[in-house]
């Protein structure tokens, strides 16, 4: 069976390699894409939408549908992970670990034991990761705001430099994941609950689709941001630029929330109790 599998893979791989010989060379000016599509974008992206970064203009404006459904796919991935993994049955663990904060002594409370109820003196800790590491916590506390600021910069500056909603959203989500890794899952869930992340993910997709719908209502075609000019009080070209920004914010919101949601569900096997 294994030899058959290897043979099939080799056959498909060589077929792929054989087909790539038909492709135009990398950066070939005579390639069909370089002859018909690229010149239009290169010449008109700045004029049409006032966006110096052509990739952003193509992603969010010329190919707006594509990005909208990509966002919807990411949202669907988060939703699928939720439906597959999330469990709501409150099965008590056999034992729980609590750290007495002033002394650093760890108590192991067996099933049926009395749970310490003073949160200022006792904190619950994961059974897999017990050390109270001051260096990691302090470093992450210093580094997380910088990461979040950079993520917002990436989203807002996507018009002029590489980046945009997807990258910025992922970095913003990664900062929350770093918080969850450096402290524990429960404190992160307390800061940004599952309900909030689900609402934010839906809101991101809704912002994108709603912008398109608003264009439709203002008498243009779906996702033609030029129609937003009267709402944004600017010219048609600047309206397209601003429309791209609005859409990128929606993408960033959705991607961030879905990344956090995925992490919550995967790292705790759907229980949201003890994470990585």
């Amino acid at each position: 069976m294994k030899t058959v599998a290897i043979l099939t893979v080799c056959l498909c791989g060589s077929l792929f390699l054989f087909c790539t010989m038909e492709f135009p060379n990398w950066g070939d000016p005579a390639a069909p894409a370089s002859m018909h599509l690229s010149p239009y974008f290169i010449q008109n992206a700045e004029k049409d939408a006032a966006v110096p970064n052509i990739v952003t203009a193509v992603l969010a404006d010329y190919r707006g549908y594509d990005t909208m459904f990509e966002t919807a796919v990411i949202f669907a991935a988060g939703l699928a992970c939720f439906f597959l993994l999330r469990t709501f049955t409150r099965k008590r663990r056999n034992e729980r670990l609590f750290r007495h904060i002033p002394t650093g002594i760890v108590l192991n409370i067996k099933a049926g034991g009395k749970i310490p109820d003073d949160p200022s003196k006792f904190e619950r800790i994961d059974s897999h990761w017990t050390p109270n590491d001051l260096i990691i916590k302090t470093t992450c506390r210093l580094i997380i705001p910088s990461i979040q600021l950079f993520a917002l910069y990436v989203i807002a500056h996507g018009h002029h430099s590489p980046g945009g909603g997807f990258q910025g959203g992922v970095i913003l989500g990664a900062s929350f994941i770093l918080l969850a890794i450096s402290t524990d899952l429960r404190s992160t869930v307390r800061r940004l609950s599952e309900r909030t992340s689900a609402i934010m993910a839906s809101a991101g997709v809704l912002i994108y689709a709603g912008t398109g719908l608003l264009c439709l209502l203002l008498g243009s075609v779906f996702l033609d941001y030029g129609a937003l000019a009267p709402v944004l009080r600017s010219g048609s070209v600047m309206a397209r630029s601003h429309g791209i920004l609005i859409v990128e914010i929606g993408v960033g919101l959705a991607v961030m929330a879905v990344m956090i949601w995925l992490y919550y569900n995967i790292s705790s096997a759907g229980k949201h109790d003890e994470g990585l």
Partner: peptide
């Protein structure tokens, strides 16, 4: 190197960043 900076940025953040964490979390569970 090929000049596709946007794609490289996406790969660095999604591929090398978050998906590795998600894989490690899945292995852990």
């Amino acid at each position: 190197i090929m000049g596709a900076v946007d794609v490289a940025f996406t790969e660095a953040s999604v591929g090398a960043g978050v998906s590795t964490v998600l894989f490690v979390a899945a292995v852990f569970q």
